[in-house]
Simulated assay, not measured.
Amino acid sequence: MNHAVGNARMPVESAAAKTPVTAGAPRVLVVDDHALMRRGLALVITLRFPGATVIEAGSLAEAVRLAQEESDLSAVLFDLQMGDTEGLPGVEAMLHVLDGVPLVVISGTLDASLIAACIRAGARGFLPKGSEAEALDHALPVVLSGGIYAPLPRGATVSPSMPPPTPGILDGLTARQREILVLLLEGRSNKEIARSLGILEGTIKVHLRSVMQRLGVHNRTQLALLVSRAGPPS
């Protein structure tokens, strides 16, 4: 088992025999500007996935260089807020050089519209920094098999490996509902959406509740994920 720090790989003792294993031996690039966070994620991965190799990067620039040098990456764990990048631009820049390698966003913020925005940009997963270590047991196999992994509200992390949305699933929505969904996917709160459209916040809630019932989802996260996969609601 190898644990990579920068370009130097050092053997690490594993307790994997005592931990659940749900995938093979992935090769993972962990990108975070906090060394303690990187090392913690690296340790969790090597403990829970026998034979796994972890490569660490402390910035977007270093991550881009390593991604270009490493031709056999299995996945990337990418911090949303770093010293040389912040938010979706960093995610998009990283995805540009990954050539299909699944990227999982790591963030201290758990927000439905943020999760949807990351998935819409091309990320294959989203992990809150407050997640239990066991979340990686589910997240990595899901994204490595082509699925999407994202948390639901109330701190309960699940893996919604949703099938592709039915073609035309958004066709029956009203023009107002489509306007609201566009703003939802931009990360706006109900209050911000109401202000932007010049209507009451309560009206936004009524529209969203109606859309959720129509599409068969139960919360903003599921709604945002479904709409982001169905395409722009314009």
Rank of each mutant, 00 (worst) to 15 (best):
M1R: 08
H3D: 06
A4D: 11
V5Q: 14
V5S: 12
G6L: 03
N7V: 13
M10I: 15
V12F: 11
E13R: 13
S14K: 14
S14Q: 15
A17C: 07
A17R: 15
T22E: 12
A23S: 12
P26R: 03
R27Y: 04
L29F: 09
D33F: 10
A35C: 03
L36I: 13
L36E: 09
M37D: 02
G40M: 08
V44M: 13
L47P: 00
F49K: 05
V54P: 02
E56Y: 01
A57V: 01
L60K: 03
A61P: 01
A63Q: 05
V64K: 09
R65Y: 08
R65L: 05
A67N: 05
E70G: 00
S71L: 09
D72K: 14
A75T: 03
F78T: 00
M82F: 01
G83E: 05
T85I: 04
E86D: 15
L88I: 15
L88Q: 03
P89N: 06
G90Q: 03
D99M: 02
D99S: 11
G100I: 01
L103H: 05
V104Y: 00
I106E: 02
I106D: 00
G108V: 06
G108A: 12
T109Y: 15
S113K: 01
L114T: 14
I115M: 05
I115C: 02
A117C: 05
A121F: 04
A123F: 00
F126G: 00
P128V: 01
G130N: 14
S131G: 02
A135V: 15
A135W: 11
L136K: 06
L136V: 01
D137F: 08
H138N: 04
A139I: 15
A139S: 07
V142G: 00
V143E: 09
L144G: 04
I148R: 09
P151L: 05
P153D: 06
G155Q: 11
V158L: 09
V158D: 04
P160K: 07
S161N: 11
P163H: 00
P165F: 01
D171H: 11
R178L: 13
L181T: 07
L183Y: 09
L183W: 05
L185N: 10
L185T: 04
G187V: 08
R188P: 02
S189F: 10
N190C: 08
I193S: 04
A194M: 07
R195H: 13
L197V: 07
L197W: 06
G198T: 03
G198W: 04
I199R: 15
I199W: 08
L200C: 00
L200K: 11
E201R: 11
E201D: 07
G202Y: 08
K205W: 12
H207V: 08
L208T: 13
R209K: 13
S210V: 10
M212F: 02
M212W: 00
M212L: 06
R214W: 01
L215S: 06
N219F: 01
Q222W: 01
L223Q: 01
V227L: 04
R229T: 11
A230C: 08
A230V: 07
G231Y: 02
S234F: 15
